[in-house]
Design a protein around this nucleic acid. Structure first.
Length: 284
DNA sequence: GGGCAGGTCTAAG
DNA sequence: CTTAGACCTGCC
C-alpha cells in the first residue's frame, strides 16, 4: 500500500480539523484517523509538519486530499489579516486557541443530508444514523481487512420512504424532510453543483427551499461543501460565544448576523469555525 | 431515569 | 416579519 506524505504549516492541526464539521472520521488508539470519504477509505495522521496518509483507492488521491483539506487557501494570511484588524482580547484568545483548524471541502449531498439529521440532535446519535444509512444503502468497501460503507448517493436513496427512514435510520420527525429533499434533488430543480456556483445569497435562498434546511443548516452546507467562506452559521455554541464576544446576553441570532456582517469580511466562515472550536472545547 | 441535544416547521399575532 | 410550541429518539 502506498504511503503519501504532505508538508503543512502551523495552520494545519488534524485533530482540530476533523472536529465539528464531519461525521465519518474516527480516531484510533494510535492517534491515526480513518474516514470514509465518497467511495474511498483513508487513513491519515500527522507528525509535526508532516501529514501521512494511505487510501483504499489511490486514484487522484493527492489532488483529492489537497482539495478536501482546503490546501489551496492560505489560512495563515487570512487569519493573521483578521487578527491585525482586531484589538479584541477574546478574538485574539480564540485565534490562538483554535489555530490549526480549517474548513473541509466535503461532498455536497452528504453534508446536506447529514446536517438535516443534525437538527436538535446530539452528535453520537447523528453519527449512528449516518452509519446506519450508509450500511443500508451505500457501497460496501474493504480496507485493511475491515468493512466500511460509503455514504449513499441520491440515486441510492431514490425509493426510500419516510417510514423507512424513521424505522430503520431512527431519525424521528426528520424522516419526511429527508424524503422530500431527496426527491427535490432528484427532480433536477435543485442541482447542488449548479447551486454551488451561484452567489452566496442566491445559493442560500435556493437551499432554504429544501425541507429540513433552515438558516443554520444552509450556512453549514455552503461553508463545508460549497466553498463559501462568507457565511456564519449560528448554532447553540456560536450563539453563546457571540453573546460573550459582544458582551450582550439578549442578542438574537438575527442581530448577531447583522453585527457579524459589519465586523468580519469575506472570510467570516473561517472565524466562525475558530469560534465554534473554542466555544465547544471550553464548554462556555 | 428524565432532560435535552449542531434547528426547523407551523400557526398565529 | 417575529415568536412560541411541537417535535423523534436515545445518549449523558
Amino acid at each position: 500500500m502506498k504511503k503519501y506524505k504532505m508538508v503543512v504549516d502551523e495552520y494545519f492541526k488534524l485533530g482540530k480539523i476533523l472536529y465539528g464539521q464531519c461525521f465519518r472520521w474516527k480516531m484510533r488508539e494510535d492517534g491515526k484517523y480513518i474516514g470514509v470519504i465518497n467511495n474511498n477509505v483513508i487513513k491519515i495522521w500527522q507528525e509535526g509538519n508532516f501529514v501521512y496518509f494511505y487510501a483504499m483507492d489511490n486514484k487522484n488521491i493527492e489532488e483529492f486530499i489537497h482539495e478536501y483539506f482546503d490546501m489551496g487557501t492560505n489560512y495563515k494570511k487570512i487569519v493573521q489579516g483578521i487578527k491585525k484588524n482586531s484589538n479584541n482580547e477574546l478574538l485574539n484568545e480564540i485565534i490562538k486557541y483554535s489555530k490549526g483548524t480549517r474548513i473541509l471541502n466535503q461532498s455536497m449531498f452528504e453534508i446536506l443530508i447529514s446536517y438535516i439529521f443534525s437538527a436538535s440532535n446530539n452528535i453520537p446519535r447523528i453519527e449512528n444514523s449516518i452509519e446506519r444509512l450508509s450500511q443500508l444503502y451505500g457501497n460496501k468497501l474493504e480496507f485493511e481487512n475491515n468493512i466500511y460503507y460509503s455514504f449513499p448517493t441520491k440515486q441510492q436513496l431514490k425509493s426510500v420512504s419516510s417510514d423507512e427512514y424513521k424505522q430503520k435510520i431512527r431519525i424521528g420527525y426528520r424522516a419526511p424532510y429527508v424524503e422530500n429533499t431527496v426527491k427535490d434533488i432528484l427532480s433536477g430543480n435543485y442541482d447542488l453543483e449548479d447551486i454551488s456556483k451561484m452567489d452566496t445569497n442566491l445559493a442560500r435562498n435556493k437551499l432554504l427551499n429544501l425541507q429540513g434546511v433552515g438558516p443554520k443548516v444552509a450556512d453549514c452546507i455552503l461553508l463545508f461543501s460549497m466553498k463559501k467562506k462568507d457565511v456564519f452559521p449560528i448554532d447553540t455554541w456560536i450563539e453563546k460565544v457571540m453573546k460573550k464576544y459582544f458582551n450582550n446576553e439578549n442578542l438574537t441570532k438575527k442581530q448577531i448576523q447583522e453585527l457579524i456582517d459589519k465586523e468580519f469580511g469575506e472570510y467570516k466562515g473561517i472565524i466562525n469555525h475558530y469560534m465554534f472550536y473554542w466555544g465547544r472545547e471550553n464548554k462556555i
